[in-house]
Structures are given as C-alpha cells and as structure tokens.
Design a protein around this nucleic acid. Structure first.
Length: 237
DNA sequence: GGCAGCCTGGTT
DNA sequence: AACCAGGCTGCC
C-alpha cells in the first residue's frame, strides 16, 4: 500500500505493543501506521520550517485540530527501522505481530513461568519477542542480574521461584527505566529530544571486565544469540 | 539452533 | 583496519 494513501487520514490515538509504535487512524483503510525504531530510529514532531538532515528517512505532514501545521520526522541513522502501513487484515497476517508475546508489565508469575520452556538459555528466551514482548539486550541483562539468574541457565530448568524473581526484576527494570526517560547509550532521545538517564543505573550492561557493584567480582562477557551479554559469575548462578 | 547480513558512525 | 552498537531476518 503506497504511503500516499495516508493523505487526509486522521490520527485518533497512538499506542504501543512490544517495541512497535502504533499510530491508529480513523475507521477505514488504512487503519494503522506502525513504526519500529530498531537500533537508531527516532520519531519526533517539528515545525514546518525544520529541514531534514542526512538521517531523515521520512517526513509526514500533520495538521492539528486548531489548524497548526507540523511535521512528523522519522530519522534513522542505521536505517534498520521500519515503517509499515496496514489495515486490520494486513496486521493480523503479519507474523511478527500475530506471534508477539504478552506485555511483561501485564502478566503474573504463573503465565511468565508457563511461557519459559525448553533448554535454550534464559537470555535467548527473554529476547524472543514471541515469548514476551518488548525486552531488549539492556533490560534482559539488567533483569537477569537483579534476579540472580545466570544468562545461560536453561529456560525450562529455572525453578518457579527464580522465574517469579525474574519477572519482578523485569517489571522493576522497565518501570524504573520508563520513569527515567529510558537509556541513552549514544543516540537515543525521546520524542521531546531528551536523553534518558537509566544508563546511569546499569549494573552490568556495558560493564564487562569491570567489578560487580554488589560483590566486586569482575563481570564476565559472552556472546549469546549474537548479542553481547554481561553478567556477574558470583551473583548470577 | 546459530550467525551473517543489513547500515552508519564512533572507538580502539 | 577492525571491532562494536538499544534488533530482527533469512539462510545454512
């Protein structure tokens, strides 16, 4: 569906599901404008006068109810981000969407426990958006540390108590990060252009070969699911 | 199931 | 010059 079909569309709400940002349009087709920021995507509004920069990939013209005209910018340095236009049917047929797991902030330990099965490392399970939606490399490592769970532990081998601790850790890490505007490692800015502050609270992410903040043991690094993983060999068993 | 590939840019 | 980075896909 060409983007030009968005002409004269009306935005009725904006939502989120996992790492997807949903701009919901008025009844009719298309019904959703969907963004995935991946690594370096940024969404923000500006006045009509702001020129695009070398990383601007798409600009949408907006008109507010009072007639004020703005632009919605999608900047993305590494161009991994995605923009999708879809009606309900297209959305349903999109595998990534239809298989998305539940929101970590909305489930209890019984459901979380039920979804952690098999012999694969718990870290891989956390990053699998079909198991639970929205967890990325930072929050997986930080939650595993807080729960005292070794990233290589088989997902299905974890005791219920450990799974419950892990879910609590995930909820706490996510809530704290949200309240601090997220984590800015190098590029991330929120829609208002503000960097986050949660990076200052990292216990393990990006701290490989540095001492554990809790016990002083040197934090170890390993590669898991193609992602760098940092953990404390003493605190995480 | 594991990992190269997709990209640009910063750091070693 | 080589390696690394908030993620996911598609190929073996």
């Amino acid at each position: 569906m060409p983007l030009t079909s968005l002409r004269d569309s009306h935005i009725v709400s904006v939502g989120r599901r996992g790492k997807l940002i949903l701009v919901n349009l008025r009844e009719g087709e298309p019904e959703h404008l969907i963004f995935h920021l991946r690594m370096t995507g940024r969404l923000f509004t500006s006045g009509r006068d702001k020129p695009p920069n070398s990383h601007t990939r798409c600009v949408f013209g907006l008109r507010e109810p009072d007639g004020l005209e703005k632009n919605l910018f999608f900047d993305d340095m590494r161009t991994f981000g995605k923009i999708m236009v879809a009606n309900k049917k297209v959305l349903r047929s999109w595998k990534f969407w239809s298989e998305l797991g539940p929101e970590p902030l909305e489930i209890d330990s019984a459901e979380f426990s039920h979804r952690l099965k098999g012999v694969r490392p718990i870290k891989n399970a956390l990053l699998d958006q079909r198991v639970i939606a929205g967890i990325g490399n930072i929050y997986a490592d930080e939650a595993l540390f807080r729960a005292g769970v070794h990233p290589l532990t088989s997902a299905g081998e974890l005791a219920f108590e450990a799974k419950a601790r892990l879910l609590e850790a995930l909820k706490n890490v996510l809530s704290e990060s949200i309240s601090q505007c997220g984590s800015s490692i190098r590029d991330y800015l929120d829609a208002d252009g503000n960097p986050g502050a949660f990076q200052n609270s990292f216990a393990v992410y990006g701290r490989g070969n540095m001492p554990c903040k809790k016990c002083g043991t040197i934090l170890q690094k390993l590669r898991l699911g193609g992602r760098s993983t940092v953990f404390c060999p003493n605190c995480q068993k």
